[in-house]
């Protein structure tokens, strides 16, 4: 059974259609990438999946719950990370993780914080204010917050932005292992094409709020006769999608 089911999703702001007639699903243990340029509708789509934004049209079902009516049942088993949404900067990393551990009802919370600190190498700054960390450290803390409740559905908005190549690689490896162990479904918005090729089973190409193409990374490379997803992205962005 699909963990995320989106049917005919749309969002209109006055005269502007930010997202139009979007449909996709994500199975258990699958990772789907939303790819598109600025203003393609990636963040709007994620905000609607999280319940922060009410769709103008369509339906979202996550973990079997209709997000229009039962979003809290789904939210307890989901989580989200974005370098663009902050955590309270005056609280230490441990305090932030404790706050969200309580909000998500995490059992054995201190042990869980310890696991995440070790896995994401947070130990050295666990007791420092989150606002005093570097951008890369903040991104790792945001990821730890997103994993505090061992979610079944994880929404990630540019999860490795601001990370140096070594730490970015470590985080990608950790996400791969977490997905393999837990069967978590991941929806990822990213501009890092190498990351998408490595982590994602499916790619949904967005342009001006509409899905213009979709498929596995390999299928898209073959279809466009390109060697990298970046070239496929540029093809679609500049010349439009090709017919199947």
């Amino acid at each position: 059974m699909a963990r995320i089911v989106v049917q005919g999703l749309g969002k209109r702001y006055d005269a502007v259609m930010a997202v139009e007639d979007l449909s996709f699903s994500v199975e258990a243990g699958e990772t789907l990438a939303l790819l598109g340029g600025n203003g393609a509708g990636k963040t709007t789509t994620i905000a609607m999946l999280l319940g922060l934004l009410v769709p103008s049209a369509g339906r979202i079902e996550i973990l079997g719950h209709d997000m229009a009516r039962e979003r809290f049942a789904a939210l307890a088993r989901m989580n989200f990370s974005s370098p663009y949404v902050s955590l309270p900067g005056r609280l230490t990393v441990a305090e932030n993780l404790r706050v969200y551990g309580h909000l998500y009802g995490v059992r054995r919370l201190e042990a869980r914080i310890g696991e995440l600190a070790e896995a994401l190498d947070l130990g050295q700054f666990l007791h420092r204010p989150a606002g005093n960390l570097s951008a890369g450290q903040k991104t790792r803390v945001a990821l730890a917050k997103a994993l505090i409740n061992q979610p079944d559905v994880l929404l990630l908005d540019e999860p490795t932005a601001s990370l140096d190549p070594d730490t970015g690689d470590m985080v990608r490896g950790w996400l791969e292992r977490y997905r393999a162990q837990s069967g978590c479904s991941i929806l990822l918005a990213s501009h890092n094409m190498a990351e998408v090729e490595r982590l994602c089973d499916q790619v949904l190409m967005l342009k001006a709020g509409r899905a213009v193409d979709r498929g596995t990374p390999q299928a898209l490379l073959s279809k466009y006769g390109r060697e990298t997803l970046e070239d496929v992205f540029l093809d679609i962005h500049r010349h439009g999608a090709r017919a199947a």
């Binding site: 999280l50 319940g51 922060l52 809290f72 939210l75 307890a76 989580n79 998500y104 917050k145």
Partner: peptide
């Protein structure tokens, strides 16, 4: 945003 997407 983090607060409103939590189960609170």
């Amino acid at each position: 945003a983090h607060i409103f997407i939590s189960p609170l």
